[in-house]
């Protein structure tokens, strides 16, 4: 088979795969979990109980410029939801939001926030503004983050679950620039998007096309050889 035909067959197969599978995957809109100051646990759920007026604060929380909604799970012991106040305060960022008690028991409560201008370290506090006790879902297994939770100033074991989502759903393509930036975290300082972008392009184009080039070249070399005796 001539090299041109090898290329043609390979490119058609590649294009079919890209159109059928890759394009839908990278262009599907999905909810983006930007960061989790305390991710939900894997093996056992802990609870942080807050009585009327009680407050739980989680320190060393990172909020990024893409974080536009905080989420936490709240239990109400089978009773109606209670009013909550979420307050985030840190270097160059302070926001306070009141949450009405119209959520149901064990619901994930989502609170919209203005994203900070710069990534910031904050303390996130949840106050029970209602009359009945509530429980914040929390983690104390190996998924517990480095943060510390204080209830009315006293350190407690588990951390309440707190995650930040982006303002709107995004495709993987839209998220890619941020993903590539984040790949530079906990890497040597000189590594970053300046290298990761070319590497991503090389990966997406170079891997299939380089493989196909190698195959077409070897098929051509084969053609050039005299037939086996």
């Amino acid at each position: 088979m001539r090299s041109v035909s090898t290329w043609a067959v390979g490119l058609v197969a590649l294009a079919a795969g890209v159109i059928l599978f890759a394009v839908p995957f990278v262009t599907r809109e999905r909810e983006i979990l930007d960061s989790a100051a305390q991710p939900a646990p894997l093996t056992s759920t802990a609870l942080i109980e807050l009585r009327r007026g009680g407050q739980a604060c989680l320190d060393q929380v990172t909020i990024t410029t893409h974080s536009a909604q905080a989420r936490l799970r709240v239990g109400t012991f089978g009773r109606p939801g209670q009013r909550l106040r979420l307050r985030l305060r840190g270097s160059g960022y302070e926001v306070m939001r009141d949450v009405p008690g119209d959520y149901i028991d064990n619901a994930i409560v989502a609170v919209d926030l203005p994203p900070p201008r710069r990534d910031a370290e904050v303390v996130a506090c949840v106050r029970n503004g209602g009359r009945r006790r509530i429980a914040l879902y929390a983690s104390q297994d190996r998924t517990k983050s480095h943060s510390t939770t204080r209830i009315d100033g006293a350190v407690t074991g588990p951390n309440f679950d707190l995650a930040f989502y982006t303002a709107r759903s995004q495709t993987l393509m839209q998220r890619l620039p941020e993903a590539l930036r984040r790949m530079g975290i906990f890497r040597p300082g000189f590594l970053g998007p300046w290298l990761f972008w070319p590497l991503a392009v090389l990966f997406v184009l170079g891997v299939p096309l380089g493989t196909l080039w190698a195959f077409a070249a070897s098929a051509r070399d084969d053609e050039a050889q005299p037939p086996a005796p």
Binding site: G10, L14, G17, R30, Q170, L172, R175
Partner: peptide, 29 residues
């Protein structure tokens, strides 16, 4: 054989890229 080989390699290249896709989705999206 050569045509089948080209198809197989492109299928494997797509599998390779799919692996990277789900990895990026898991940790960064």
């Amino acid at each position: 054989g050569v045509a089948a080989g080209a198809v197989v390699l492109m299928g494997l290249a797509l599998l390779q890229m799919s692996g990277m896709g789900i990895l990026v989705e898991r940790f960064y999206a």
